[in-house]
């Protein structure tokens, strides 16, 4: 079990030993990605559309027909040139919808999500194959990336700035958005802006500590920690992510996009270094049904049993709002609250 604490300082020997271990870990992960490529069946190939400077999005989905229309619209507007999707056994037309999009390449698999490191092995192979040298965005269907100036400066401007600063990666915090009132009482229609339903968030209860092995800042907190993990704080969901990376074929994500190898990629610290937010639209009205399904499939989290009560709670149509919840307005608001920072990008 990890305990909160300051950044570890190691001796020269320990540092080299850890670096050596993690190098081999990275190789193992890459090998896994290579092996798991056989599980992927190509359904729609439009990868010839990828140009040398294209910005790519990688995403693993299952039954996300509700979110995808807005998801694609949002990221197209932001400047993603091509989407690479893995459809993990959807049964409600998600695959057909995606295959019909002009800028999507689609792979399918019905293998275990959990055994594929929650999709990271599959996406890892696609990144190795298509992502090398590109800025790659790796997000879930319920995550919308926002960052300073995102309304006026698209992803190309952001990646241009990161290139100029010599930074190969960009960190973002997951921000859980929820409606005011019981979550299942707010209907949402495919194609609508989910932020019109999920209007609120917790502004100031995020805690951070050093991860003792990966040396990244491990952030937890927010509404899920407050409501579902009060007595088991250490199990509260991890919120720090590195969704945007100038990819190299030797890179590997470790757990979801929380940690990366080599480690310098997720070291996004500074005196308030440029960082963004992943607006998390998990709490749409379908959350109850999804959680019930999850209780049966047991495909999420390392120890699914330990999260049983969490999913149980989610099926009870909870109201996550409280008087101190804040209504989401803009990136300027998030910057003022200290959830994101824009450094000296003007």
């Amino acid at each position: 079990m990890l305990t909160p604490g300051p950044r570890l300082s190691r001796g020269l020997f320990a540092t080299s030993k850890l670096a050596y271990r993690l190098r081999w870990k990275r190789r193992r992960l890459l090998f896994r990605c290579l092996r798991k490529r056989h599980q992927l069946a190509l359904r729609q190939d439009r990868t010839t559309l990828i140009k040398p400077d294209s910005i790519l999005a990688f995403c693993c989905v299952r039954n996300e027909a509700l979110r995808l229309p807005y998801f694609l619209q949002y990221y197209r507007a932001l400047g993603v040139d091509h989407f690479l999707f893995v459809d993990n056994g959807s049964d409600e037309g998600t695959g057909t919808y995606l295959a019909a999009q002009d800028d999507v390449s689609l792979w399918e698999t019905s293998e275990s999500y959990k055994l594929s490191r929650f999709g990271m092995d599959w996406l890892g192979w696609l990144q190795m194959r298509f992502g090398h040298g590109h800025w790659c965005l790796t997000v879930d269907a319920d995550e919308l990336l926002a960052y300073p100036h995102h309304a006026t400066h698209g992803l190309r401007a952001l990646t241009g700035w990161l290139d100029q600063q010599g930074r190969p990666s960009f960190g973002a915090l997951m921000l859980d958005l929820y409606p005011k009132g019981p979550v299942e009482d707010h209907k949402y229609h495919a194609g609508d802006d989910p932020l019109s339903v999920l209007t609120h968030f917790d502004p100031g209860n995020y805690r951070a500590q050093w991860h003792p092995i990966y040396d990244n800042l491990w952030v937890q907190g927010g509404v899920r920690a407050r409501r579902f993990f009060a007595s088991e704080s250490a199990r509260a969901p991890t919120l720090n992510k590195v969704p945007l990376v100038k990819w190299h074929r030797r890179y590997a994500y470790v757990t979801s996009t929380h940690q990366m190898l080599p480690r310098h990629l997720h070291d996004v610290l500074g005196t308030g270094a440029m960082s963004g937010i992943l607006l998390h639209t998990k709490f749409l009205y379908t959350i109850g049904a999804k959680s019930r399904e999850e209780l049966e499939r047991k495909q999420h989290f390392e120890n699914s049993a330990l999260y049983g009560t969490y999913h149980d709670d989610l099926t009870q149509n909870p109201d996550l709002w409280y008087a101190g919840s804040m209504r989401y307005e803009s990136w300027q608001q998030l910057m003022e609250l200290g959830l994101i920072a824009k450094e000296d990008w003007i």
Partner: peptide
Amino acid sequence: FAQAVERRTLGRPGLLMQSRFPS
């Protein structure tokens, strides 16, 4: 531009966040 430089070099004291965690 002066504001930008200040933001970059000083950060915001008393703020802990994903990209600011002073020792």
